[in-house]
């Protein structure tokens, strides 16, 4: 199958892209001002002591040696030890990755389903109240800084009314109690994830909705829509089967672009809600000059974006029979 060949080719491309990203990251972190040892070392330590610690982390070696070492280790799945937590980075990433995948993919799935459905409806009933309302509502959250919306949401729903916890992902009272069942734990996670997920969804959905609306308006002028009407098909079938299916194609294209652009939103949301994901870890690691941890988190986020792009490409080929890879 040519599709399988295409996927193999794309995975190879992803691999190459990752090497480039890793190189850029390596250079970037070494260019940052400050010294990682300053954070973990006591000022009262002797220079000899400092040197020993630096040697332990390989920071005394020449830069090219560090680079090659860094590449080799990455491909062996050895991401080094976090300077700050003094734990293997691999373990830390493994802990945080599921939380990030839950929040980000959740937000994408909900915001795109919502955006596509709303965009479809408001284009079909053009000029209605719903169009005005949802465009205004969507654009408001699209333009507002995500951390501001997040803080307001926290203030209203968590602080004032106490509907949701103030942050985190797992409530300690539920998770430390051995008698808590799966259902209770799931409910606890849901309660924690609702606010950050809603904020991220609100920030994302307007984009897909407006693209879908425009694309739908264009599709409705196509001749096959006239054919569908002439066949005597009911309105809903024309809208969903004939128009929306075609109108979705540009939305998938913009998805691939939007994923890269929305990483910032994800990082900010995680930070605002003290959400224990990769995004928050990146910020913490950067602030503490935790090179290995920051590099690994960046790399995994880059990998998420690349995988999302691959998914978009495969989805596109599935939706449009004219696309042959």
């Amino acid at each position: 199958m040519s599709m399988q060949k295409y996927i193999v080719k794309r995975i190879f491309q992803i691999f190459l892209t990752l090497i480039i990203i890793m190189t850029i990251m390596f250079i970037l972190f070494r260019m940052m001002p400050g010294d990682p040892t300053a954070f973990m070392l006591d000022t009262r330590m002797t220079p000899e002591h400092k040197a020993i610690i630096r040697a332990q982390f390989g920071l005394d070696k020449p830069i090219w040696y560090q680079y090659l070492f860094y590449l080799r280790n990455f491909f062996r799945g050895n991401f080094g030890r976090s300077f700050y937590y003094a734990r293997p980075v691999y373990d830390l990433v493994k802990e945080k990755l599921p939380a990030t995948i839950l929040l980000w993919t959740g937000a994408y799935i909900i915001s795109y389903s919502l955006g596509i459905t709303l965009g479809k409806i408001i284009a079909w009933r053009r000029g209605g109240k719903l169009e005005f309302g949802s465009t205004l509502f969507g654009l408001f959250f699209y333009c507002m800084p995500i951390f501001w919306v997040g803080l307001i949401a926290l203030w209203i729903f968590s602080y004032k009314f106490g509907f949701f916890p103030l942050g985190g992902l797992k409530g300690p009272d539920v998770w430390s109690d051995p008698s808590s069942g799966m259902l209770l734990k799931a409910y606890d996670v849901l309660k924690h994830v609702t606010l950050p997920l809603s904020v991220l969804t609100l920030a994302f959905f307007a984009g897909s909705m407006l693209v879908m609306r425009t694309s739908m308006l264009e599709t409705l002028r196509e001749d096959y829509i006239m054919t569908a009407r002439a066949k005597g098909l009911p309105e809903k079938t024309i809208r969903d089967r004939h128009a929306a299916r075609n109108a979705m194609l540009p939305v998938v294209t913009t998805f691939a672009i939007a994923v890269a652009g929305s990483v910032g939103g994800g990082v900010l949301t995680e930070t605002t809600f003290s959400y224990p994901g990769l995004g928050k870890m990146i910020v913490d690691a950067t602030l503490t000059f935790d090179y290995p941890l920051a590099q690994a988190s960046f790399l995994f986020i880059a990998l998420l974006v690349l995988v999302a792009n691959l998914v978009a490409d495969i989805l596109y080929a599935y939706l449009d029979p004219r696309i042959v890879y």
């Binding site: 001749d223 096959y224 054919t227 009407r229 002439a230 005597g232 098909l233 029979p321 004219r322």
Partner: peptide, 24 residues
């Protein structure tokens, strides 16, 4: 009521070059 007249009673041949068939 028009829907049952369409195609069943009166059908239409469109200009093919104008995308009268749904591409997907």
């Amino acid at each position: 009521e028009m829907r049952s007249v369409r195609w069943n009673g009166i059908s239409m041949i469109f200009q093919a070059a104008m995308n009268a068939l749904n591409p997907v």
